[in-house]
């Protein structure tokens, strides 16, 4: 696979697209396997501060897998093994000295399907604060988080109601509020709009634009239009079939979003962003 090797080399060179001092997250030769199956290989990329970085690519290209490396959520998946290094600031998240629980407060996550806790709207926000030993004013935290997530107006009179009683779009904004209530530095979003209708999607995308001022956002998306709408940087992943027939992903191209979409350097990227496959 000589062409493949070449792609890897180039992907590695693309470190340079992000100013090193601005990087909040950095991966070095990350390789993920599930049991004996390779899922993702040799990913090296920097995620810049206060920017939105989109991870795009066809199914099975490992973009969600990479996202879960950033807050060690892969720990929950049986048989998942991460090799290489994932740095948050100057700390290797996979070093044995790191407590994954405290990683997850600083690096929050919003999931594909809205998954509020089966608790009141109020408790949905305060739960994370409580388990992390928050000592401030809970009421204030709830109001601020919901306001930041553009949900306060809709729910301020029914904070005691169950989070599951909200509509899908509201649930997802509740999940975003829940994530930012912990005052994280990074918010990871795994296809946050894939189960939402277009109106809710637009609201969440607007929200992402606003949140960018305070947070670094990494978003996985299937939707290329969404990537162009919300992101500053885009990483394109592709999937390849290995000898035993299973698919693994690798980073093809990583650059500023407009460059990836308007002037891609790789043929695969060109094909993907122009809708020829995927």
């Amino acid at each position: 696979m000589p062409t493949h090797r070449k792609q890897q080399e180039e992907a590695r060179d693309q470190h340079s697209v992000v100013d090193e001092s601005e990087a909040v997250l950095r991966t070095e030769n990350v390789k993920v396997t599930y049991g004996d199956t390779l899922a993702l290989r040799d990913v090296s990329m920097d995620v810049p501060k206060n920017q939105v970085t989109a991870l795009i690519g066809p199914s099975g290209c490992g973009k969600s897998t990479l996202l879960r490396c950033f807050n060690r959520l892969n720990d929950l998946i049986d048989g998942c093994k991460v090799e290489g290094k994932v740095f948050y600031r100057d700390k290797n998240l996979y070093s044995s000295k790191i407590d994954p629980v405290s990683v997850r407060r600083r690096i929050g996550m919003v999931f594909q399907k809205p998954n509020p806790f089966p608790k009141s709207i109020y408790d949905n926000i305060t739960y994370g604060a409580k388990v992390n030993g928050f000592k401030g004013d809970m009421d204030e935290l709830v109001e601020q988080s919901l306001q930041r997530a553009a949900l306060w107006g809709e729910v301020k009179d029914k904070l005691k109601e169950n989070g599951l009683s909200l509509s899908g779009g509201q649930q997802q904004r509740l999940c975003i509020a829940r994530a930012i209530a912990l005052k994280p530095e990074v918010v990871l979003m795994d296809e946050p709009c894939s189960s939402l209708d277009p109106v809710s999607t637009e609201r969440v995308e607007d929200l992402i634009h606003e949140l960018k001022e305070d947070y670094t956002i990494v978003i996985v998306t299937h939707n290329m239009h969404q990537a162009t709408r919300v992101s500053d940087f885009t990483a394109f992943f592709n999937a390849e079939e290995s000898d035993d027939g299973s698919r693994f992903g690798y980073l093809v191209e990583y650059d500023r979003t407009e460059r990836v979409f308007e002037d891609p350097q790789e043929e695969a990227t060109q094909k993907y962003v122009s809708g020829k496959f995927g």
Binding site: S102, G108, F111, K113, P118, V131
Partner: peptide, 15 residues
């Protein structure tokens, strides 16, 4: 109880 809810809880830093 869906696993996603467990992930959410782990995701906000719960043990």
């Amino acid at each position: 109880v869906p696993p996603q809810v467990r992930w959410a809880s782990t995701g906000v830093g719960a043990s």
